[in-house]
């Protein structure tokens, strides 16, 4: 039963990782920006929802505000940080350092304004009850899975059925060709950042209910999103999402065999192994060295 319990717990977390990882992969695939500040969008969205919740806003309104702030943050990063650097043909690592600087700023601003340390939303949703002997599940488990599924269906439809979505996919494949057809790659990058950032909001809100927030909560999320993107195979949204799920499950299920303190290393061992033995990831094309 321990195994099933840990597996289901891992699936719940993995569903949330899948969302943030898909956001990261979408941004990275379309714009080739390694968006290290992705976790900051998560933190901001979570705290905005928390603010709304503690001020008795309608939860739909709070969620909308959370999405809006995440999207605004993503677009702001693209406009104010990434685009100027890329105009200078700044290297991949210039972008990395700049984004890292932003994530430090966001983390500390949240600390100053929202207070440091633990904050959570008190809701019966996250309170587990015994559904089978020895098996505890909270309603939030179902919410997480349904939300993740709905988001993915919507995203897939958007990418395959709308012009902008097709444009985004084209941007990932061949930006030059896109320009030749007169589509604006600049507007499409903004769209990628907006969509990718919006995907973190539901995960952030659910995290606020389950594990709670602190100002550094985004870091772990960012690392896992990045790891999932690589493990899933760069350029594959489906791969990133599945990898996110897989890493979430790995983090949890590893406790069947190992002591609790080793959980954190598990997902990164998976990542390291993939890079060594199958660098193209689960669904990626072969990697040029």
């Amino acid at each position: 039963m321990l195994f099933v319990q840990l597996l289901l717990g891992g699936v719940q977390n993995g569903a949330l990782y899948a969302l943030t990882a898909a956001g990261f992969a979408l941004i990275f695939g379309a714009t080739k920006v390694f968006h290290v500040a992705h976790g900051s969008a998560f933190t901001l969205a979570g705290y905005v929802f928390l603010y709304g919740w503690t001020h008795n806003w309608n939860s739909a309104l709070s969620s909308l505000a959370a999405v809006a702030v995440a999207v605004a943050f993503g677009i702001g990063m693209e406009r104010l940080v990434y685009r100027p650097i890329q105009r200078h043909e700044g290297s991949f690592f210039t972008v990395f350092v700049a984004a890292f600087g932003v994530s430090i700023v966001v983390q500390n601003l949240v600390g100053v304004f929202a207070g440091r340390g633990f904050a959570s939303i008190d809701t019966p949703l996250s309170n587990a009850s015994e559904v089978l002997p020895e098996l505890f599940l909270a309603d939030v488990f179902w919410v997480a899975i349904i939300v993740a599924l709905v988001m993915f269906v919507a995203l897939t439809l958007f990418l395959s059925r709308t012009n902008a979505g097709v444009g985004l996919r084209a941007l990932a494949q061949n930006p030059d060709l896109l320009r030749a057809y007169g589509l604006s790659s600049s507007r499409l990058s903004m769209l990628a950042f907006a969509l990718g950032s919006a995907l973190v909001a539901p995960a952030a809100i659910l995290t606020a209910m389950t594990t709670g927030l602190n100002e550094a909560v985004g870091n772990h999320v960012m690392l896992l999103s990045m790891a999932s993107t690589i493990v899933g195979g760069v350029g594959s949204l489906r791969g990133a999402a599945l990898a996110g799920l897989l890493l979430g499950v790995a983090e949890s299920v590893v406790l069947v065999f190992l002591e609790t303190q080793w959980a954190s290393a598990a997902s990164f061992l998976v990542l390291f192994g993939f890079i060594l033995f199958k660098p193209s990831g689960m669904f990626g094309a072969a990697v040029a060295r």
């Binding site: 977390n13 505890f136 594990t211 909560v217």
Partner: peptide, 20 residues
């Protein structure tokens, strides 16, 4: 006894082990 890193944040899996 269940050791956790100083910056661990998720305790669902630990709870499962504790219950056991």
């Amino acid at each position: 006894s269940f050791s956790i890193p100083r910056d661990a944040q998720q305790f669902g899996p630990v709870a499962a082990r504790v219950r056991q």
